[in-house]
């Protein structure tokens, strides 16, 4: 315990760099950018950022356009998904209101469930994945390479039978621990954690590799234990990728349908993907408008998480620290 001091010095040093670069940025922008926009010759502006806006505009149109249909459908109660004539021909919030007024289809509960399951599974995946990535990146052991490849190979197995297999498995678990078996959100989260080691581990592994081992070694010499090094030194350094993986796992669990639909029976416990699908699964009673409204609101979750995490994703912390 006495070894905290050197370690924390190192972290403090870290923070100084980060703060330093942030300060640098802050100074650079207010002073240089705004007036520069006016004064900077157009040619220079164009070469530096202008063309990027053009690319951005193109991407915005490409990204958003199909979604405009979804938004339009959500505002047109009783309407269809694809409108041939005109978008936003009718605008009403009826579908959004209806979404929250269906006792058999408790949208609000689905939303909270999804939030809970998504965030928990995402946090769990990040933790489990980071632990494994750290081992793969920093330690040398028998089967390391094979293990790395196997992780990805396992994910390649065609999941045609996943539904049947997972149901049988969870039924077995139910026999022993009903609380984490069928119809339990914890059970579902555990299944999602089954995929925590996989592609995302690789992503983190690659990122861990870019953090020089000299940092670990310095910490070792200062007397920090492996757990301390991992949690307090390495993890902060790789926060961009942790944030990316968190977001990827969240989106994955958000859109996962097959397993959630098998495991969660009680409407009060279901997720958005499962619940919303009910509005359109039956060809003879499709309600695209309500479904679209639900999807629009559901998109708030990943977008909000992205907003929260954006500064980690693009912070470039390591950039300052490595050299």
């Amino acid at each position: 315990m006495a070894v905290t001091a050197p370690g924390s010095t190192l972290i403090a040093g870290e923070q100084t760099t980060a703060v330093g670069s942030a300060r640098l940025r802050r100074q650079r922008y207010p002073r240089a950018e705004k007036p520069a926009l006016a004064r900077r010759p157009f040619k220079k502006w164009w070469r530096e950022t202008g063309w990027r806006h053009l690319v951005g505009a193109g991407v915005v149109v490409f990204s958003v356009f199909p979604l405009v249909y979804v938004l339009s459908a959500s505002l047109n109660p009783g309407g269809t998904l694809i409108s041939a004539n005109s978008l936003f021909s009718r605008v009403s919030l009826g579908s959004y209101v209806e979404l929250f007024n269906r006792p058999q289809q408790p949208y609000a509960a689905w939303f909270l469930n999804t939030l809970f399951i998504g965030l928990t599974a995402s946090a769990g995946s990040v933790l489990l994945g980071a632990l494994a990535a750290y081992a793969f990146s920093r330690m040398r052991f028998t089967g390391r390479r094979v293990g790395l490849i196997t992780l990805v190979l396992v994910q390649m197995f065609p999941q045609l039978l996943a539904m049947v297999a997972i149901f049988l498995l969870m039924m077995g678990i139910s026999e022993v621990f009903p609380a984490i078996g069928l119809n339990s959100q914890i059970g579902l989260i555990m299944v999602y954690l089954g995929g925590a080691l996989g592609v995302n581990t690789y992503l983190m592994y690659g990122f861990f590799n870019t953090v020089p081992t000299s940092i670990d070694e310095a910490a070792h010499i200062d007397g920090a234990g492996h757990a301390r090094i991992f949690f307090t030194i390495i993890l902060p350094l790789v926060s961009p990728i942790l944030a990316v993986v968190a977001l990827l796992s969240l989106v994955a669990s958000l859109s996962e349908f097959v397993i959630a639909s098998v495991l969660l029976r009680d409407p009060e416990r279901q997720t958005l993907a499962v619940g919303l699908f009910q509005f359109i699964s039956q060809e003879t009673s499709q309600n695209w408008s309500v479904f679209a409204a639900g999807a629009v609101l559901a998109a708030v979750i990943p977008v909000a998480l992205f907003l929260l995490l954006q500064r980690y994703i693009v912070s470039g912390l390591t950039a300052g620290s490595v050299k």
Binding site: S63, L67, V70, A292, L307
Partner: peptide, 28 residues
Amino acid sequence: DKRMTSRKYYRLVMILPYAFPGFLSALV
């Protein structure tokens, strides 16, 4: 590029296709 202050808005928009259910987008 750090010189581009508005990049976070572009980034946000680019997340959107990822935030909607895939089959909904495919149908659209």
